[in-house]
Structure formats: C-alpha cells, structure tokens
Computed example of a mutant assay.
Amino acid sequence: MNLIKTGNSWKFATEADLEDFVWANLKELFGLIPLKRQYYVNGQICDILALRENKQLVVLELKNAEDRYIVQQLTRYYDALHEVKPLEDEIDYQQPISLIAIKPNFHRDNFIDKKYHHLSIDFFEFAVLADEFNYYFQIKNLDLDNEKVSKIEIHHQDREKNEDILPPSRGLINRLAKCSSEQQEGILKIRQKVLSFDKRMEEISSAVSFKYGNGNSKTSKFCAEFYFDSKGIPIIFLWLGLKNNSSDRISRARIWTDWQGNALLEGYVPSGIGAKINLSKKKLSNRVKIMNEIVANKNLTYRTNKYFSQYYKDRNRITRKINNSEPLTYEERQLLEIDANEFTLVRGGGRLNTYKFDRYDSLNGLVEVALEKWRKRL
C-alpha cells in the first residue's frame, strides 16, 4: 500500500489504495466474501460488493477523507441494486441489502442523515497507526455500544507527502480555481494516482495543458493529460488502444466523464482539444433536447418534420459507427436512446431499434488501463 504522512498522522495516498486494502482484507475485517469492485448498475458505480456466508449482499462505500453525502450515495446504490437485482445466482435478494460506510471521520451531517433514514447503514471509522516498525489499519464500528475496534497490519510502501510527488503547480492551481469542486477532486485524484504509479512519471505543464509521461522529448511516452479549453473547462485525455480500446495500437483518446466515476471513450484526437468532437457534441445536444421535448409532448406537426429528418440521418450515421466498432460520444448515446417509435409509425416508417446503453466505463478503470499500457510501451 502507498501511505503518505500529513502532519503527525498517516493516510492512504489515494482512495484507490484504501479500496485495494479493504478489498484484500474483507474476510479479516468484516468476515465478508469479495464479490465485485467498481460495479456498475443502473447508472451507479458501487465501490465494493461482498457477501456474508448466507449470501446476503453487503455494499461498502469508502472515503479517504470527510464526505457529507455518503448516506445519500449508499441510498442510490441500494435503489439501483434493489431494482435491477443483478448477480441473482450468487445473491439472496430475499434478505435485506446491508450498507456499510467506511471513512476516517464522519461529519455531523452524516449522523443526522442516518438518524432519519429507514435503511440500515453501519458507520465504520478507520485510522492508519504507526509504531517504530509497523503500520496498522484500525477500524471501529460506531454503531455498537462498545465501539468494537479491530486492527490489522498494513504492508506498506512509505511515501512522505512531498518526498516523491510535488504539490500542484501555481498554473494548475489557477486552472482548478475555475472548476467545480467535483472536477477539482477528480483531477487531483487522477494526478495523485498517475504520479505515484512509477518514479519515471513526470508532469509536463504548458499554458493550457498538463501532460504525464517520462519526459517531454520526441521519444517520450505519455499516458494522461488535462486540457483546459478557452472557457476553463477541463477535458481528460488518456493514451488508450484504438478501435474503442480493443487494439494494441495506442492513440490519444478524449474521455467524457460526469465526475462521479462514470466515463466514456468518445474519440481519438492526436493533438489539440478536438474541435470536431466539440462541434458535433454541441449540435447533437440541441437535437436531443428538441427530440425529447417532441416525444414528451407528443407533438407531431408539419414543423417537426425537419427535426425527424435530421434525427434519422443522425441515427444512421451513429449506427454505422456502432457497426464499425467506433466509439460514441455521450450525446450520440443519448440520441439512440430516444424512443420515437410512436411518431415513426404514424409517419409510415418502420419500428426503430431503440438502444439502451446500460454500461459506462469506470473513470478510475480507464486511468489504470492507460497506466499499464504506458508501462508496457517504455
């Protein structure tokens, strides 16, 4: 595990390191059987799914710092799992789904949310302790009267906070100041993960971007980049495989994310920001909005014909991309999910195949793929 020192205390370098440790020690810490990590279900990504011996499902959400909304997050996971009921061969859904929140400290708001919540949620508080020779993970259940404490050893790799990884530059800090709190947190987490991956990794900054690789020469290899457009909006690029990441050939891929863990590989941009992708996304976003309004209001008039005509052209173009295994943008997926069959049949057309995209990539998972591909290319 990667540990960093902050003041007189120690912590996991990233939330991913915390998750790695808990996943590897589920049996010893909680008596649980590992099932799935970063599991996508119905628009949500659960940190860890585990089972008790009787096949009862347990959902664990981990935070490496204070978070005021962990109860709401677990509620969304519960709803998604309860509605879809995935992995039914392994899980007994006749039993209630158990929810566990794991953090270094809990905000007062967490206890208020929990107090008036009808779901059962257990709060576990952890700390990283150190003596002269070893490091320990101490965890206690705040919901028990005796606050039972468990402690196991952490097999670690020491890393002082500023020893290997320099703090963000003034340029990056200035860029982050214009971002939302979710964007700031996401960028800093990825930066920490990338720079702590390998001692050869460097941060190369310019006026509008921050690249990560082994130097900045013609033979250097890159794996990630934060690019800020003219409005200060951050865009993530990762060096991934061509053909929707299925090829061994690597190129610079533009990534869409909702900054909540969901991500999509939208296309490949050798340099710059991807002006064509931007223009296409903007146009499609407007068309998707108009078509959704038409369908919702059941508005079939002469004026809507031009929108349907463009809608069919867009669908045909996007379908060809699917057939060629090309990546789709977020807006292209949205357009294909519009159910316009009622209007299509009225206008004398055949029934459309309405696509349902029930899977996004994990942003953390794509970063890990880019890191591994980078290491192989060195």
Score class of each variant (00 low, 15 high):
residue 331 E to Q: 10
residue 355 Y to A: 10
residue 268 Y to L: 09
residue 348 G to Y: 12
residue 319 T to E: 12
residue 250 I to L: 13
residue 280 S to D: 15
residue 300 L to A: 03
residue 306 K to V: 03
residue 328 L to S: 02
residue 311 Y to E: 05
residue 240 L to W: 04
residue 304 T to L: 09
residue 356 K to L: 11
residue 279 L to C: 08
residue 334 Q to R: 12
residue 227 Y to I: 05
residue 337 E to I: 07
residue 339 D to M: 05
residue 292 N to V: 04
residue 252 R to Q: 05
residue 269 V to K: 02
residue 268 Y to F: 09
residue 276 K to H: 10
residue 314 D to T: 01
residue 232 G to H: 05
residue 352 L to S: 06
residue 326 E to R: 11
residue 322 I to L: 15
residue 349 G to P: 06
residue 306 K to P: 06
residue 296 A to M: 11
residue 233 I to S: 10
residue 307 Y to E: 13
residue 240 L to P: 01
residue 319 T to R: 07
residue 259 W to R: 11
residue 340 A to C: 13
residue 231 K to H: 08
residue 356 K to C: 15
residue 359 R to G: 04
residue 233 I to N: 10
residue 274 G to H: 03
residue 238 L to R: 05
residue 275 A to E: 14
residue 264 L to N: 00
residue 316 N to L: 11
residue 311 Y to A: 00
residue 228 F to M: 03
residue 338 I to R: 15
residue 319 T to H: 08
residue 312 Y to H: 05
residue 332 E to Q: 15
residue 322 I to G: 06
residue 257 T to H: 03
residue 347 R to K: 13
residue 277 I to L: 14
residue 290 I to Q: 11
residue 338 I to A: 01
residue 280 S to Q: 12
residue 241 G to Y: 00
residue 307 Y to I: 04
residue 263 A to Q: 03
residue 316 N to G: 03
residue 230 S to R: 09
residue 231 K to S: 02
